[in-house]
Design a protein around this nucleic acid. Structure first.
Lengths: 201, 201
DNA sequence: GAGCAAGTAGACCTAGCGGTATACCTATGG
DNA sequence: CCATAGGTATACCGCTAGGTCTACTTGCTC
């Protein structure tokens, strides 16, 4: 039962933090929304900052699952897998209640590089870059480093722009830009049917 | 003399807000740093929020000047002018005391779309997009809308990524991606020497 | 020199924050 | 049946924030 309370509290805090912001949501609001006592939160998590880090870990896990399922569901062509990411981003941006990127928000609300919240956010983004690098390495005739970092910039740009303007179109433009970047200078074998690696995440 | 005090206060507030954050800097810290009385701030600006909006207007004006001088100093080729933007971004990211984008920060710290601070931030970004659209319209054989929005995403992505990772490399990758996007599907006249329009900003 | 707009210093107010302490309740398991 | 771990409710603490009030001073202009 103890673990049930803890999980519920964590889920509620995650939703509120991601939707509204970390500084903007108070401990009082969280415990009221979750229907638990104030002390339960402090017994389980110690402090607000520790709770924030815990919610970021949870958000990170959920985002990984979303990302992998979006990419792996696609065909085996590495190019299609990378483009699927941007297709999925569009749906994500357009979905009801989309709240932007909690990690960008966290890194800005906690700008000190050594702060645990900031570090958790940066680690998430480095995981994304690492995953993209693995996918880009499968693309024939491309420099994986260059391609993956450029796609990462489109990814970050689309997230920031959609959050700023409150509209999903950035994902569409990012996808078309990604298509162009994937059409590398060297000729790519369009008919490749080779089985691709599944990248761990 | 009154206007001198006001300008000084505004400049100090702008620097502190942009470097440290809007919620993170208190009115007390600003008046102490500026060496003026607390009431002087409130007589001149009314409230902290109004002061923030005023600093964003100032930051917007300074950013416009920086942007135009970086772009207009380049050769007349529209492609070079757009690429010059990313060269200038690299220098900006690498410069001592670079503090990231105050407008992205503002939009995140004040997420309500109707809030004056959020609106000021979005208006700045729409100015950027409009300027890029004008520059992209000069590029032969490119769809201005598509090109400009894609470059805008690289622009936003580079800013966000450099802020997050604390390094200037995103501008370099963005520039190379922009080069590729500028090498459009149609043949572009490499030897064009036509005089370009100067876009107002 | 008088008058007035502007600046100053600092006490003060209210509100909200993160976090703690305490006293009581409740359910599970030997 | 009762010991105990965990949950609850609420009062409380210290601190900081944004913002106001007031009494006093400065400096420019007629």
């Amino acid at each position: 039962m103890a673990v049930r309370k803890r999980d519920h509290l964590l889920a509620v805090a995650q939703r509120m933090f991601c939707e509204t912001g970390f500084h903007a949501v108070s401990v009082d609001e969280i415990v009221r929304e979750a229907g638990v006592a104030r002390m339960t939160l402090y017994k389980n998590f110690g402090s607000k900052d520790d709770l924030i880090v815990a919610t970021l870990k949870r958000e990170d896990r959920m985002f990984r699952e979303w990302l992998v399922s979006a990419v792996e569901a696609q065909s085996d062509r590495p190019e299609d897998r990378l483009l699927a990411l941007f297709h999925a981003l569009y749906d994500r941006f357009a979905s009801e209640g989309y709240y932007g990127c909690a990690f960008i928000r966290a890194s800005i609300e906690y700008p000190a590089p050594g702060h645990p919240v900031h570090r958790a956010a940066r680690e998430h983004k480095e995981m994304i870059r690492s995953y993209l690098r693995g996918l880009a390495a499968e693309v024939k005739g491309a420099d994986p480093m260059t391609l993956s970092e450029q796609l990462y910039l489109l990814f970050e740009g689309a997230i920031t722009a959609s959050q700023l303007h409150g509209e999903p179109w950035p994902a569409e433009y990012a996808r078309r830009a990604a298509e162009k970047l994937l059409t590398g200078p060297s000729v790519e074998p369009r008919a490749s049917k080779k089985r691709n690696k599944v990248h761990a995440l």
